[in-house]
Design a protein around this nucleic acid. Structure first.
Length: 736
DNA sequence: CCCGTCGTTATTTTT
DNA sequence: TAACGACGGG
């Protein structure tokens, strides 16, 4: 039996107060790196071990499966009984709830979850007048509406989309979606809210079941999730459910996806009597890094306010590096990393952060060239790949034969001569007969419809449909007879019998892709699931609700540099971080004002606070953008932070503070374009630092066969020539 | 049905 | 610049 005092003794006073607090709602404002996961997990252990709270009556929700798993593992390490606590993502809770109350929610118990892409397809089927692009946009708005807990008849729908057609489109989509029996992501939250608000009985059952509710990363919850929490807590009917939320308003970065910072800012009003505890001791970053982070975020108006204190000394100031172009930026990063590597710093200590995925390209090219191993996080999602979606569609159709989207995706793949017209006929037939034909017809849904429709069709379509049905039939027979086997074997069978494996293998040869291997990866990931209906739904759920789970070839022990968008770094930390592209228009992105600009600022804050020991920030004066060469200005965030928090390398553009541009402008060479800014940057008198030779000064400049050449006199006596155009990365201009 | 060409358009995306 | 969708010919 673990002794609670052991783990309480590890906490600082605020953390301990947060763990033992009871009797009123609790809001924990946990700054970056302040040990919030430790607090939540300790609290779970404490409630079970010390307060005799039943583990299964604790519900802890997070946003990602990874976070849920980490929380579960750490809680179990402190208190084995925590294995029975419900530690889930919001969406997996919704899924659990909806399978339990499928009937009340008006959906199929075997539902699968449609993603954004499926939504767009469904919109275009529901409203054929829309172009593909319009449908995608409408789908996006519908998703957003659901995040805000708005139904097609909600008045506030205009706040999401002012187009007068929108409510109609949304309603048509809903109708179509309900006819498939499936749900979309928004429904996983919205439908439980509707059911709970509607059915007192069910609400009471939930209050009886869950006595403690904790929410992690509360700053990223949306309105629907807030309403779900409200319903589950029964705050308005004195259900006596204990609520504890943890978050950091300064790290709210998902507004564009419906996250509502207001949720955390107004928590105290919505849950009267709330106690507030701040965790402000930062155990991750050095003081200098935190100082820069604080300077940035202090420029935001809309925040609860908190000041992080460094627990591990000041360290070195963040280095702000001004570079001529994005190529120099990539070279600078590579050089920095290689230099450190030679001194024994592993690659995995490093992360390169950028605002948009497209920016990863320059680094990939450069690193490939220099043989620096790297891992790009998150750009191409496994589950979004065509071959994976194809196989999953087959499985989804077997799980739920009314799944129109899955049906359309694979009925003619590989091609059997079943065009869109034929598909429409089958889908219409199913919809017309589903309600009247009794249970049998309903159960076999689109497959039965295929059989029926085939009778009255052209030879070609008839043949195609018969082929398709026989594939499904074979697989169904196999599925039913293999209940003792593994699901992975069934998926393998599906991949073969459907012809999809062969189809995608041949694609591999044409375009050198890895599709067959990806399919194999999918098959492997199902080995632990039984070949039963339950196993199948569980597997599909796991895939749909945890899209990070399948990252093929991602060896965790590989020593690589991480390339990642700042959004994706939430919850991560690295010893050394380089945040790139700090230029107006890139970061913050253009057109950001007001609260959008505040969110960009928070994003910068998140990026900075990922760094444990060293932080570098780069800003280029020229960047190729959409095929154009753009002259960039340093990010306004750099000015807001103030110069004193950084150590500055390279030459800041004149717009960065009051610095005058180097005298080099008069050095004899005309400054025509940015390409020629070489002579401006690398002019006589400029002080430099070189990796091998140390400090020095440019004593002569000139051109040799068209290339700009500088001569540098180093303090150690060496005198060398360089071509800054190619060697800028090994030479750093000292500004101070 | 497949493949090539032309024109358009460029965030962030836990689930 | 590049990548992707729309369209038309084989």
């Amino acid at each position: 039996m673990p002794d609670a005092d052991d783990y309480l003794a590890l906490l600082n006073p605020e953390q301990k107060a947060a763990v033992i607090q009871e009797g009123a709602p609790l809001l924990i404002l946990a700054g970056a790196g302040s040990g919030k996961t430790r607090v939540i997990t300790t609290k779970i252990a404490y409630l079970i071990g010390r307060k005799q709270v039943q583990p299964y009556s604790i519900l802890a929700v997070t946003f990602t499966k990874k976070a849920a798993k980490e929380m579960q593992d750490r809680a179990v390490a402190l208190e084995p009984l925590a294995a029975n606590a419900q530690i889930r993502t919001f969406h997996s809770f919704g899924s659990w709830f909806l399978r339990k109350y499928a009937e009340e929610a008006g959906i199929d118990k075997n539902f699968t979850v449609y993603d954004d892409d499926d939504m767009a397809t469904l919109v275009s089927k529901a409203v054929p007048a829309l172009s593909r692009q319009e449908a995608a946009k409408a789908a996006h708005r519908i998703a957003l509406a659901k995040d805000f807990c708005l139904t097609p008849d909600s008045k506030n729908l205009v706040d999401i989309e002012s187009s007068p057609d929108f409510p109609e489109i949304y309603a048509a989509y809903e109708k179509r979606l309900r006819s498939t029996g499936n749900v979309d992501f928004g429904d996983l939250i919205l439908l439980p809210v509707l059911v709970l608000n509607d059915r007192e009985q069910i609400r009471m059952q939930m209050h009886y079941r869950f006595r403690v509710i904790m929410v992690d990363e509360y700053q990223d919850s949306n309105v629907a999730q807030f309403k779900l929490l409200q319903a589950l807590s029964g705050a308005e009917e004195n259900a006596g459910v204990y609520v504890c939320v943890v978050g950091d308003d300064d790290q709210s970065i998902y507004r564009f996806r419906g996250a509502e910072v207001q949720n955390i800012l107004t928590f105290q009003q919505n849950f009267p009597g709330t106690e507030l505890i701040r965790l402000e001791r930062n155990y991750r970053s050095t003081g200098c890094i935190l100082a820069a982070a604080d300077r940035i975020v202090s420029n935001n108006e809309n925040r609860l306010g908190k000041t992080l204190r460094a627990e591990r000394g000041n360290g070195n100031p963040p280095v702000l590096v001004f570079l001529p172009t994005q190529d120099d930026e990539a070279a600078f990063c590579a050089e920095l990393i290689m230099k450190a590597y030679k001194k024994g710093c592993p690659y995995h200590d490093w992360a390169i952060l950028y605002r948009t995925n497209a920016q990863s390209l320059e680094f990939e090219t450069e690193f490939l060239h220099r043989k620096i191993p790297y891992t790009v996080v998150g750009s191409l999602k496994f589950y979004e790949r065509e071959e994976i979606k194809d196989i999953l569609a087959f499985l989804a159709l077997i799980a739920n034969p009314r799944d129109e989207i899955a049906f359309r995706r694979i009925v003619n793949k590989p091609a059997h001569g079943i065009g869109e017209k034929t598909q429409d006929t089958v889908v219409e037939y199913m919809k017309d007969h589903a309600g009247t034909a009794g249970g049998g017809e309903l159960r076999s849904g689109l497959i039965a419809a295929c059989r029926e429709c085939a009778k009255s069709m052209s030879k070609k379509a008839q043949r195609g449909l018969t082929d398709f049905v026989s594939v499904i039939d074979d697989l169904t027979v196999y599925f039913d007879s293999a209940a003792a086997g593994k699901l992975s074997v069934f998926i393998e069978k599906t991949a073969e019998r459907s012809g999809l494996l062969e189809y995608h293998s041949s694609q591999d040869e044409i375009s050198g892709t890895q599709r067959a291997a990806n399919i194999q990866e999918l098959i492997n990931s199902a080995v632990l699931y039984p070949c039963t209906r339950q196993g199948l739904t569980d597997f599909l759920d796991a895939i749909e609700l945890d899209r990070e789970i399948e990252i093929p070839g991602k060896e965790h022990d590989a020593d690589t540099v991480t390339l990642i968008t700042i959004h994706n770094t939430k919850g991560l930390e690295f010893s050394r971080v380089i945040i790139t592209g700090l230029e107006n228009g890139i970061f913050p992105r253009q057109d950001k004002t007001g609260s959008d600009l505040e969110e960009e600022r928070r994003l910068f804050y998140v990026g900075i606070t990922r760094a444990r020991d060293e932080l570098y920030i780069t800003s280029c004066s020229v960047r190729r953008l959409y095929g154009r060469t753009e002259y960039m200005q340093p990010s306004q965030f750099l000015l807001e932070a103030g110069k004193d928090v950084f150590r500055i390398l390279g030459t800041p553009p004149s717009t960065y503070g009051n610095d005058t541009f180097p005298a080099a402008l008069h050095d004899g060479e005309p400054r025509k374009t940015a390409g020629d800014s070489l002579s401006a940057l690398w002019c006589s008198g400029t002080r430099l630092y070189h990796d091998d030779w140390g400090y020095g000064q440019i004593i002569k400049t000139g051109y040799t066969s068209g290339e700009y050449v500088i001569t540098v006199q180093f303090e150690n006596g060496t005198c060398r020539q360089f071509m800054p155009q190619y060697q800028a990365h090994s030479l750093m201009i000292i500004h101070e």
